[in-house]
Design a protein around this nucleic acid. Structure first.
Lengths: 243, 243
DNA sequence: GAACACCGAAACATCCGAGGTCTCTTGAGG
DNA sequence: CCTCAAGAGACCTCGGATGTTTCGGTGTTC
């Protein structure tokens, strides 16, 4: 195993064992390199890798620190991973979201504070009558994020956030192409909001299911349609259209 | 933004844009470094980081390649991330698993092939009458993995796999401390298997819910108990006991 | 006495070049 | 046709030199 990988494991162990707590500063590069028995160059590779997944945070002129290691931060790195997936796997991601989103919405109906519910409602009103597609998608992301946050489970919230990446692109395309999608989205959002406000978890869950399933069904039909047409058009599906 | 981070984005873009397809080989270090306008050292940091999340695969003496980018591979990297979480967030992970596992089990009841179901049953028989805790946990992981795989959704399967990491540790501790846990696990596994074999998705879902909820409830009571006792004992909870 | 500007130390960022190790390919020999 | 050894190509590791950024102390000014 390359020395860099060994270093990654060693640093990981130092954190898991508690030798390095969240927020702690690591020894300076030269010192840590000597201690782990490798060169600064190789150590820097290890640090950079741990940086990408948000475990470490390097600040030039200051030092290298362990991040808070909170779930939202670490799962945030998953967004980066999800970005690599293309159309053919987007459906699988959406299927998982279809499982998680209703559960999160039901939890939100139980746990959200009155203040948060008020803010959720305000989000719906913020939207202009004829919003741009970008504004709509941004508002949609905020809406679902607030609900996920209201579930009270940070892991669930972060996971849903990461999964929204690819579906967001699909939504853009949907908004661009499918007439009525905008209005329907608003209606369903309102229904979800009202169910949460009424503290009706099962109703909220059902509306969320309907909402996600709508996107899923549309995406499925679109993909199979372009997929069977020819090889070329498949490349101009949501992924390409949104980038 | 540091040049290394720029390089990471550039390589990422090269992959997403299709310039680099899965399995493709990257230009040699020196060449790519010049093309991206940075030194080999910095480029190596970028490559190493993308390596950690399984996007790239470097083979000494050969070259650097883009991995298959399949969901199981990329989400596998999440296991690394999950490892960093301590007791206090394990419950949140378990709660997510409690949402996904029943859904996956229900899907498995619908989609699993007869052959796979046979193999699933064989897993149950493989276990000795008085298994060691390690053997039990290994068998348990295999059992749930096969079901997740049977859901037909690779993303769901990989996600559950990653989430099992922390709960596996908890299970070890549970097996060590709670009398009757072993027998109860076997009974529930058998029930899940039978529900899948009978193609009863709702029954399978319910048994899976019961199964995961059992672990969750036990873990919750254990954590609150040790948590209120004192600061010290909390350190000897599942995380420490399993390492 | 407090606020501000300056300066030096500390730490990371980047680059370069040399020597080592591994893998794949090639071609000679059996 | 198979085996094996030599060579080329690519990544691995190292150490040092130089640039940039940040932090904290110091001195001045209001």
């Amino acid at each position: 195993m390359p020395v860099t990988d060994v270093a990654i494991d060693k640093i990981k162990d130092m954190i898991i064992s508690g030798e390095l707590a969240p927020g702690d500063r690591l020894p300076k590069e030269a010192e840590l390199a000597q201690r782990l028995g490798l060169s600064r160059s190789s150590l820097r590779e290890a640090v950079k890798a741990l940086c990408l997944i948000r475990v470490l945070d390097v600040r030039q002129g200051d030092g290298t620190y362990v991040t808070s290691l909170e779930p939202n931060l670490l799962l945030d790195a998953m967004t980066f991973v999800v970005d690599f997936h293309r159309d053919d796997t987007v459906l699988d991601f959406l299927a998982v979201r279809r499982i998680l989103e209703p559960a999160a919405t039901a939890l939100a109906a139980l746990h959200m504070s009155e203040d948060d519910i008020t803010e959720l409602g305000a989000l719906l009103d913020e939207l202009a009558d004829a919003p741009t597609v970008e504004a709509l998608v941004a508002n949609d992301l905020q809406f679902h994020r607030k609900i996920a946050d209201g579930s009270g489970n940070p892991v669930l919230c972060s996971l849903l956030d990461s999964l929204s990446g690819p579906t967001a692109r699909a939504r853009i395309w949907r908004g661009l192409t499918q007439e009525g999608a905008v209005a329907r989205t608003r209606e369903q959002h309102t229904a979800i909001y009202e169910a949460i406000a009424a503290r009706e978890p099962e109703l909220a869950r059902s509306w969320a299911t309907v909402h996600v399933a709508g996107v899923e069904q549309w995406l499925r039909s679109t993909l199979t349609q372009t997929g069977t047409d020819a090889e070329g058009p498949a490349d101009e599906s949501p992924q390409a259209a949104a980038s």
